[in-house]
């Protein structure tokens, strides 16, 4: 029997990390640099993009930024995924310049500005691709009140949950005759199916889940005190890993890949907030 390729769609595309700025789980000199340093370096590089007004300076900036990007052992395929949105912007800016100034005079400024915009955003992409979410989360926990950071983490935690819910509800409704496939949704006459058969049950589910999550958190004392201990679980994981008692995580969905425990980093302090 011939192999039949698995069905694609949202599930497969999310699982394969097709969208840009996903964390790249390999080692590189940039990966090893601290998050704060990368942030400052990135901001400097982004700011310098404003100075690329001549071909020479622009070329130099492109070279420096590309070196930074490639030093993170990121590939050209990664680069395309990170900048393709800005390429669509370029497709708007360059014709506009040509329209206003004519092709002869408008082409260079259009290309220059488009390149500068990419150079402005690219260091941010490098930061996201080389910084584990656990580090970003740790930083957020230090900066935000715990009541807000909790909500951010719940939001991230339930991305795969609701992704599955969307898939399950869509499957059930398709089998009842609802037109929910992407190609069917290109026809606006099928949009009522999207809202009635998918969005509405999904919102009912969200309401119920919000009840359950709130109860679960409250049952474990969340929000009862003004202060809360800030416990760094990745330290425990690291110690358990060294003692050989903890399995390595097995990331599969993109959110899991992003949220691996920390490995090989400096021991962070445990504090009470």
């Amino acid at each position: 029997m011939a192999n039949v390729p698995a069905k694609g769609g949202l599930r497969r595309s999310l699982r394969s990390c097709d969208y840009g700025c996903q964390f790249a789980a390999h080692d590189s000199p940039v990966h090893r640099v601290g998050a704060g340093t990368k942030l400052v370096l990135g901001m400097l590089l982004s700011a310098s993009a404003a100075g690329g007004r001549t071909p020479a300076t622009l070329g130099a900036l492109v070279l420096v930024t590309l070196c930074y990007y490639l030093a993170a052992r990121l590939t050209l395929a990664d680069l395309w995924r990170d900048i393709r949105l800005f390429m669509f912007q370029a497709a708007l800016v360059i014709p506009l310049y040509c329209l206003v100034h004519g092709t002869g005079k408008g082409l260079w400024p259009g290309i220059r500005i488009s390149t500068q915009i990419i150079l402005f955003y690219l260091p941010g992409a490098v930061f996201l691709r080389t910084t584990r979410s656990s580090e970003v989360m740790r930083g957020l926990r230090r900066v935000l009140p715990y009541r807000v950071s909790f909500l951010v983490f719940v939001s991230v935690r339930f991305v795969p949950f609701f992704f599955r819910e969307i898939a399950d509800i869509t499957a059930a409704q398709r089998l009842r005759g609802a037109k929910l496939l992407p190609r069917q949704q290109l026809n606006p006459r099928n949009w009522p199916d999207l809202f009635n058969c998918l969005i509405l049950p999904l919102m009912v589910r969200a309401l119920k889940t919000a009840d359950e999550v709130a109860r679960s958190a409250e049952a474990r004392g969340f929000g009862a005190h003004r202060e809360r201990t800030f416990f760094q679980a990745d330290l425990l994981i690291r110690n358990a890993g060294e003692a050989g008692t903890a399995q390595q995580s097995e990331p599969s969905a993109p959110t899991e890949k992003l949220l691996q425990g920390n490995e090989g980093r400096a021991v962070p302090r445990c504090t009470t907030r």
Binding site: A240, A246, Q247, S249, E250, A253
Partner: peptide, 9 residues
């Protein structure tokens, strides 16, 4: 105990 690092997902 051996599943410390894993996501419950």
């Amino acid at each position: 105990a051996e599943h410390l690092a894993r996501s419950p997902e």
